[in-house]
Computed example of a mutant assay.
Amino acid sequence: MHDRNTSLSPGIQVDDFGSLADGRPAKIYTIEHPNGLRVRVSDFGATMISCEVPDKSGERADLLLGFDSVTGYQGAANPYFGASVGRYGNRIAAGRFSLDGKDYLLATNNDPAGIPCHLHGGELGFSGRLWDAEPASDRRSITFRYHSKDGEEGFPGNLKVEVTYAFNENGDLVWEANATTDAPTVLNLISHSYWNLSGDPSLPITDHQLTLFANHFLPTTQGMIPTGELAPVANTPMDFTVPHIIGDRIDADFEALQFGAGYDHCWVLSGPREEGVALAARLKDPKSGRVLEVFTNQPGIQFYTSNWIDEAHFAGDNPPGKGDRIYGKRSACCLETENFPDAPNKPNFPSATLRPGETYRHTMIHRFSAE
């Protein structure tokens, strides 16, 4: 699929991933673990391109939606497949916020129900940038670095960002983001991977079983901006405190599901924390037996069921997905650990402000098993 080029690092496989529109080359890096996990990541957008995981029979398959080259990831129709998103992942109402008495105006690059908002960092965001890569010699980790200049996409402060993909001592896949700034700014870095644990994206994820360790969720307006309320999930289709098949209630006559055309909301995590992280979600594919558990140090998790992915993403000059596939509605789901959407405009939400001398840290752990 790619031209092999291992000259950049003696300990990790490095492949060509195509060229950006300005001619710069993009690379793809492979990290592996003896337990059978194999992950490929790119310096374009610090993006996770593939994640190969064994099923209960030991058969390994790629569980992520995406593209075969960087061309697809540059396209306007790319729904942030696998990207490291920033400065602010998720939505900011009307593309506006105030910080220390100063107003800031951002791009309004999304308009649910015709109501404009800022989404995932703006016109390019971090997902549309080429990052510097530093692969480790042990083949099990790689760090990407990006310097976001003061004023980029309308955000204040020069921001230094690191995203690391690594296997820990338990064989878990860790995505970790760190950042520092020289002026007050707002920040919410997220990993935006689309999972189908069957390994076959022609099969919808509506038969997957999900548990969310959250007793509340954030209701939104029609424009998918949180109202500020923390609503109980009890006795609603948003209750995943015990395992539920995703498709059982996804089209229920419930306002939140109508606004999102399915699940596309932030849940407020309530699980106990150990060593700074809490179990946020458990996703299982009954057929393959694959299980994904997600742990995080963040207060929320956005669960999204690919409600807006359809043939239009691959029409015209837009390339198809991996292996010439055309992904359909609900062909994958996202489990994005995060601070709350629109937190800069909601004083009752956890603060999204980062100040000089502070270090932002977002840890997201993916634990795979099969049963």
Rank of each mutant, 00 (worst) to 15 (best):
Pro232Thr: 13
Pro232Asp: 13
Ala234Tyr: 03
Thr236Tyr: 07
Thr236Lys: 06
Pro237Leu: 13
Pro237Asp: 08
Met238Lys: 07
Phe240His: 04
Thr241Arg: 15
Thr241Val: 05
Thr241Glu: 06
Val242Arg: 08
Ile246Ser: 06
Gly247Val: 09
Ala252Leu: 08
Ala252Glu: 12
Ala252Trp: 07
Phe254Tyr: 15
Phe254His: 14
Glu255Asn: 14
Ala256His: 15
Phe259Lys: 15
Tyr263Glu: 06
Asp264Met: 08
Cys266Tyr: 03
Val268Glu: 08
Leu269Lys: 01
Gly276Pro: 10
Leu279Glu: 12
Leu279His: 14
Ala281Trp: 09
Arg282Ala: 13
Arg282Ile: 13
Arg282Phe: 09
Asp285Arg: 03
Gly289Trp: 02
Val291Ala: 03
Val291Arg: 03
Val291Trp: 02
Phe295Ser: 06
Asn297Trp: 03
Asn297Met: 01
Gly300Asn: 05
Thr305Gly: 00
Ser306Asp: 04
Asn307Pro: 01
Asn307Trp: 02
Asn307Tyr: 02
Ile309Ser: 02
Ile309Lys: 00
Asp310Ile: 08
His313Arg: 14
His313Pro: 05
Phe314Tyr: 15
Ala315Asp: 13
Ala315Met: 12
Gly316Cys: 12
Gly316Met: 12
Asp317Ile: 12
Asp324Met: 07
Arg325Asn: 05
Ile326Met: 04
Tyr327Ala: 01
Ser331Asp: 01
Ala332Ile: 00
Leu335Met: 07
Glu336Ala: 06
Thr337Met: 09
Thr337His: 09
Glu338Gly: 08
Asn339Phe: 15
Asn339Ile: 14
Asp342Val: 11
Asp342Pro: 06
Asn345Leu: 10
Asn348Ala: 15
Asn348Glu: 15
Pro350Leu: 07
Ser351Met: 10
Thr353Ser: 02
Pro356Leu: 02
Glu358Cys: 07
Arg361Cys: 12
His362Glu: 09
His366Leu: 15
Arg367Ile: 13
Phe368Trp: 13
Phe368Gln: 08
